[in-house]
Structures are given as C-alpha cells and as structure tokens.
C-alpha cells in the first residue's frame, strides 16, 4: 500500500528522462511500482500519476488494459500456464488441470497461503518446448505433471529464489547511461544522476554483475538456448555439408 520509495522515485525520474514525452514512461513506471509492492496499489497508481502529471484514472485506465498488471494482490508466485494452440496440441490443458489439482485452486485464484496465483495465459512464445509455463515471467518448458510438482515444491521451499525473483520484478539489469546523443527535448526532465557514457561500467563488469546475480536463471536460459540451438543445428549442419 505504498507510494514509491525515494530510491524508486529516483529510478522513475531517470526513466522519464529517457523519453521525449513524459507519458511514455507510464508502463515502465507501473512495472516499477509492481516490482516494489508485488501488485499495483491505489497509492502506487496515484504516485505514478503524480510523477507523470496524469490523473490516477488515466493511469488506472491504461494499466487495466494490460494483462501483466494486477490491481489486486497476487500470490508470491504467479504461475502462468499456456493453453494456446501449440500447448493445446501437447497437453497444455492436461497440465493446467494437474496444476489446479496439485495447488488446490482454479485458474484465476490464489492459494490460501498466498504462495501461488494460478492463471491460464495466451501463447508465451516457448512453443518448441510445449507445454510450457512461466513463474513470475521466468520460463519453463516441456513441463510434465511430475516436473510441475517438483517445480512447485522447489518454489514453496524457496530453493528457486535466485532463478525466480518475486512477482513484479521484471528487468534486473539497470540502464547504465542516460541519453547522450542529442540535446534533451523541450519539457524533458533533466536527470543529474544519470552517468555519462564515459562513467559507465566497463562491459565485463556489467556482464559479471548480471550473471553473478542470476546464475541459476542463466542455467535455465542456457538450457533453453541449448534446446533452441539444438533445433537450429539442423540447418547449421546442412550448411557445412
């Protein structure tokens, strides 16, 4: 139930400064508010509106258009199961039914302990590994019922905390520079804190930091990438012939 923290206000102002027009920062700021509180609280929406010189109704009206924004509390883990065509053909609905039984809630509901919110979603673009799901928008492919139960148990036990950040956390890699190419547009808020390009972290550090923070997620990603790479390998091999 909170307004943005001073740190997040700084981040919000830095974000606003990236756009020629202030309102463009609306979606990024809503993600920021959702990252802070896990959902979009009335106070959070009001604060975003203040920062963008909009009314809360304008912010709410936009937020409610987008599926990723929640204007009521959600569980610690948002489990999003795809049932669109590629998953439907590969057991997506069976997976959803299993998840409903296993978690004891229907799609759209949150478990009484607040651990999980289960939802049925449209295609999440991991169709080569159908059926698939996302937890707080970290992707898992080829999910069998057994694998689902293992995943749920791991999440419940907090074993995947690194791989799956709390709900609302989207991008953990921050921009290291402000705008450098041109003169700020009229009306653009100047940001004193944004470092110039010369002060940016060296690339190696940036990567190390990013990887250091999220080693397990990278493993998962590597797995995915490997599977995908495997899939394109056919054409690689062919080219070599």
């Amino acid at each position: 139930m909170a307004r943005l923290t001073p740190e997040n206000v700084t981040r919000a102002r830095e974000t606003i400064a990236l756009y020629p027009q202030t309102r463009s920062a609306l979606i990024p700021l809503l993600h920021l508010a959702q990252e802070q509180d896990g959902w979009l609280t009335p106070d959070g929406i009001g604060h975003v509106a203040e920062l963008l010189d909009l009314t809360p109704a304008e912010v709410y009206g936009t937020a409610s258009f987008y599926d990723m924004f929640f204007t009521e509390p959600v569980g610690k883990h948002l489990v999003s199961i795809c049932t669109n065509i590629a998953c439907l053909l590969n057991g997506g609905y069976e997976l959803l039914e299993h998840a409903e039984q296993s978690l004891g809630v229907k799609a759209g509901a949150t478990t009484p302990d607040g651990e999980f919110t289960l939802e049925e979603v449209e295609c999440i673009a991991l169709c080569g590994n159908a059926p698939c799901l996302a937890v707080n928008w970290r992707f898992f492919g080829d999910v069998t019922p057994t694998r689902f139960d293992e995943l749920a148990a791991g999440l419940r036990a907090g074993q995947l905390a690194e791989e799956v950040p709390p709900h609302g956390t989207l991008n953990r890699v921050w921009r290291t520079v402000g705008l450098v190419a041109g003169v700020p547009a009229e009306g653009r808020v100047a940001v004193q804190d944004a470092p110039a390009v010369a002060e940016a972290e060296p690339p190696a550090d940036t990567v190390k930091d990013q990887r250091g923070q999220r080693e397990p997620a990278d493993e998962q990603a590597t797995e995915d990438a490997a599977a995908e790479a495997d899939a394109v390998e056919g054409s690689d091999e062919g080219a070599a012939e």
Partner: peptide, 21 residues
C-alpha cells in the same frame, strides 16, 4: 514483449555494453 523478462535483461545488458563499446 513484457513477458520476456530474460530477454529484457539480455537486451538491456547488451545495450549497456554497446554504449560502453
């Protein structure tokens, strides 16, 4: 796409590198 959390992180990290490069 908002759901591509890892994608967002990878592009932002790459962009930070590209600026520095």
């Amino acid at each position: 796409r908002g759901e591509f959390a890892l994608g967002l992180e990878r592009v932002q990290a790459a962009l930070n590198e590209a600026y520095a490069h």
